[in-house]
Each structure stands twice: as C-alpha cells, then as structure tokens.
Design a binder for these strands. Sequence first.
DNA 1: CGCCTGACGAAAC
DNA 2: GGTTTCGCCAGGC
Length: 127
Amino acid sequence: MPIKKKIAPAAAKKDIKKPADSFFDSVYEIVRLVPKGRVTSYGAIAAYLGTKLSARMVGWAMNAAGSADPPVPAHRVVNRNGMLTGKHHFPEPDLMEKLLKKEGIKVKDDTIVGFAKLFWDPSKELL
DNA sequence: CGCCTGACGAAAC
DNA sequence: GGTTTCGCCAGGC
C-alpha cells in the first residue's frame, strides 16, 4: 500500500444526483428495503455491509439520508435497544414515532414496543 | 493533510 | 446490574 490514497479524484463523477457512491448508498437501500411496520438496527445494517465493527458509520450515513433521494425511512432504523435515538435529528422530534405509530408500531418512552418481534434483519430476511 | 466529530455497540469497572 | 469509557470508520472543516 503506497502510503495514502492522496486526495480523491472526485472528477469522474457519475451523473448528477447521488453524489455519494460510498456505502452510504448501500445503507439507504437497506433501509428502503425494510418492510412497512418493521424496524431494524444500525448494527444489523452495519453487519450486512461488513462494517459491523462500526455501527456508528451507519448512523452517519443516515445523517445524509435527509438529503438522499428518494428519502430514506430513517424512522425505521433504531439502535440495538430499540430506542429512537435518532429522533432528535429529524426535522421534528415527534415525526419519527409519529410515522412509526402510523405504520402500526407502538412507541413507548422513545422505545419501540415489541422491538424483538418487529426486528428486521437484512442478512436474514433479505437473504 | 491532519484533527475532531458522530443517529452505536460492547467491554470494562 | 448500572454506569462509564473505549473502539470502530469515514466524512467534514
């Protein structure tokens, strides 16, 4: 490995839209594949992508999800505890549980009720 | 080019 | 058993 890869070319881009070719896009796809009324965890997505060692990166990707097109249902992604940790990042803190409740998911105290039941594992269900 | 941050997770104390 | 800290990787400034 010749030292670092230096600055990225960033020239041969693809089309316009979707400037992120990184695993960010992969994360978006996974989240979009989550069935309605189901939820998944950052760790599950991370494990599917191979970055299980850093579930943080998944949450990071979601940060850009707000700019992703089509919009990613980030409200279906919660932490391993089933807690809506990312609700504070939504345009409206109540929007997240609001959407979840609308899909039939019960949210109590910022935590998904029956999370274990509603848990959707990409590497398992998406097999 | 380098340091800091960050929507988690698991180990340590 | 609860709380705290470290570790992970990648992006932003």
